[in-house]
């Protein structure tokens, strides 16, 4: 595994322990919807992601980008937002604990309310408690760039008009949490990215955890 790579002298954040301690696995399992074995399986995924560019036991933004886009170059607004929400401690890297906490929301058994909240925070770019028209515009421009599509300014404004007509029930020009919730309940497909079926039985996706397990049949 990656944690057994040769020491890297420029790697200052390399953790001393190569494996996640049993107590830590149990704690993370208790804090989440994952069993201890599932936390171990997710640790296999975490190790793979966290050593893809810098082998220091943390996921850097470039490593998340590499996994999602097969390139570590370029800017992507959505990647930035996802990274920021995973990075609870706001220290610029994702630790294993943060990885588990965030993936917990993507569990098929996580309540819809949690998923709705997560996406609201994701889209509330400036974190004002509202999704504003400028933010939606910025995100539409970002998705157009990502998919190399072009839209005229006029069409873009029409899409924004329609969106706010659909969602902004009190017509104050910004979307609050309640309006967002009401809209998403009517359009649950907007949450499709928020459920990862793999997480239902993660230990079969990453069976290699069996070789590294510290707990039998947890």
């Amino acid at each position: 595994g990656c944690f057994e790579c040769l020491p890297n002298p420029i790697n200052l954040r390399r953790p001393k322990k190569l494996r996640c301690a049993y107590k830590e696995l149990v704690r993370l399992s208790q804090e989440s919807r994952f069993s201890v074995n599932e936390v171990e399986a997710l640790y296999e995924l975490f190790k793979k992601l966290s050593c893809s560019i810098v082998d220091d036991g943390f996921i850097h933004k470039e490593e998340l980008q590499l996994a999602l886009f097969q390139t570590s170059q370029g800017e992507n607004l959505f990647l930035d937002r996802v990274f920021d929400l995973f990075d609870e401690k706001r220290n610029g890297v994702i630790a294993f604990e943060e990885f588990i906490h965030a993936l917990n929301v993507f569990h098929p058994c996580a309540p819809m309310e949690e998923k709705i909240d997560f996406v609201f925070k994701l889209y509330d770019l400036r974190q004002t408690g509202f999704i504003e028209r400028e933010e939606v515009k910025q995100m539409v421009i970002a998705i157009l760039m990502e998919s190399e599509m072009k839209l005229s300014d006029d069409l873009l404004e029409q899409i924004l008009d329609k969106t706010f007509a659909d969602v902004d029930a009190d017509r104050d020009g910004r979307i609050n949490k309640e309006e967002w919730k009401d809209f998403v309940i009517q359009h649950p497909s907007l949450l499709r990215n928020m459920t990862l079926p793999y997480l239902k039985d993660i230990s079969t996706v990453f069976p290699s955890f069996v070789f590294n397990t510290v707990v039998e049949n947890a």
């Binding site: 996802v82 069409l155 924004l160 329609k162 497909s189």
Partner: peptide
């Protein structure tokens, strides 16, 4: 027709939001 779409339908198609790709071997 793009104009018939709600912006959030477009946005939800972003690769950056599709974490399923993390599980690709």
């Amino acid at each position: 027709q793009p104009v018939a779409m709600n912006a959030f339908e477009l946005i939800s198609m972003s690769k950056g939001l599709n974490l399923g790709n993390l599980f690709d071997e």
